[in-house]
Amino acid sequence: MKFSIIISNYNYARYLNAAIESVIAQSYQNFEIIVVDDGSKDNSREVILKLQEKYPNKIKAIFQENQGQGGAFNTGFQASSGEIIAFLDADDVWKPNKLQQIVEVFQQPEIVGVMHLLEEVDSDGNLLTTKSPKRYKLGEDLAKIVIQTGNAWNFPPTSALSYRRSILEQVFPIDPVRWRIWADGCLIYSTAFLGKIKTINLVLGGYRIHGANNHASAEVTSEQITKALLGVEMTNQYVNEFLENINYPHRVDLSRNLQLRREQYYQQKTWKFGEICAISRLILGWRFYYWYEKIYYLMRFWAKNLNIYFRNNFLYSKKNTKQFAE
């Protein structure tokens, strides 16, 4: 099996060498690397051309005006020729045995996609924690999970994704405007309804945490939360359109999405007993939580609600007292 490795790059010149060299060092060598530079303004072109000169039989370089991640994926897929398409972010790296592990899973004809674990590393490639990477409670029927959880995100990111070309031909080209960022979500949610996706609990790469990527900040602003919620709604609309196009019998209902529903409730800052009970039921039935996490998050949710209740009643009482005094 031949792999096509699609690397979308935008201003990550400082990490490109590590990313590409981690592919070159693979124990499984039947692959091509397609680097799509998405209008970088740093010295990415120079770095890419030097690497292409160093490995002329392995690297295909494409330079285009900035279109976002979705547009870069479209370009890379169109230029690819492999039976298996694997994605690697330009700031991430792979373990030397990544492709060998993946190709063994793809020997099973019913498997159309493979995901795996990533460990977090810093800007210098050093491991950030000694804890084991998060394991995903996913079976091979991702479609069922997506429907049950309302498109809730609990999946590994771009650099852990690989799919059969034949499956991605039913997904590409993707909308470059709606998927300017987070295009890995488009791939995961769409392919879930096209066949069996295997998640292997092996660490086969490093996800780099640094100041320039979308997940680096420990503090999340209200603006980022609002943007994320809009992103969930857009994703849901896109997925349901896709399901309609492939004549899938079911649609995704966002009311089942615990992450979205809980955050929307918090933003309202209003005590609503019916919604509290509904969200509590979602927490207790949430397939992505272990039993002890369900207890923890349920207690945390109720603690926040009690805070909302007493704060609102205090403000109401204070307002009435002021009006009476006037």
Rank of each mutant, 00 (worst) to 15 (best):
A79D: 00
I147L: 15
P56C: 06
L128H: 05
F288S: 02
K144F: 15
Q67S: 15
P109D: 06
K95I: 03
L49V: 12
A325P: 07
A143W: 10
Q101R: 11
L306S: 10
L243C: 01
P176M: 04
T321E: 08
T158I: 07
E83Y: 07
A143G: 15
I167A: 01
Q259K: 09
K2W: 03
E263R: 11
E326G: 05
G139A: 12
N307W: 14
R180W: 03
L282A: 15
Y163S: 08
N97H: 07
Q170W: 10
A79V: 04
K137F: 09
P133G: 05
C186G: 09
Y292E: 12
L138Q: 09
I85K: 03
S166C: 11
N74V: 11
A183P: 01
V232G: 00
Y55E: 01
L187W: 01
K304T: 00
K131A: 11
I295E: 12
T221E: 08
Y248M: 04
G231I: 09
Y289M: 07
S217W: 13
Y289L: 06
K41N: 13
Q108K: 11
P133H: 00
G125N: 06
W94A: 06
L118S: 12
G70T: 02
I59S: 02
E53P: 01
N320Y: 00
W271H: 06
K272F: 08
L243P: 00
K50G: 03
L161T: 10
V239E: 03
M299Y: 10
V171A: 05
I6W: 01
I111E: 02
G82N: 06
A61E: 05
N307H: 13
S166Q: 06
K269N: 15
A152Q: 05
L298G: 08
L49I: 06
H250Y: 15
T321R: 06
R256D: 07
F273T: 14
W286C: 04
Q69R: 10
A86K: 00
S44L: 11
L230R: 14
E244W: 06
R262K: 13
N213K: 05
K134C: 09
A86E: 04
W302Y: 14
I246R: 05
A72F: 02
S4E: 03
Q78I: 15
S22A: 04
P56K: 01
E223G: 07
G205F: 02
Y316G: 06
R311A: 08
G231S: 11
T158L: 12
K227Y: 14
D91Y: 01
V105K: 10
A303L: 14
L118Q: 10
N97V: 09
G206F: 03
K54F: 05
S123H: 14
V23I: 12
V114N: 04
K294V: 15
A79C: 05
Q148R: 13
N245E: 14
V23Q: 04
Y207C: 13
R262S: 13
V36T: 02
S27Y: 11
K137N: 08
A228F: 08
P173T: 10
Q108S: 08
F288P: 03
Q170F: 12
H215Q: 14
K95E: 12
M299I: 11
E326S: 11
V114Q: 05
S132F: 08
F301A: 07
I295L: 12
E32L: 00
I295A: 14
K41P: 07
T270Q: 07
T270C: 04
K58L: 13
G139P: 03
Y296N: 13
N74E: 08
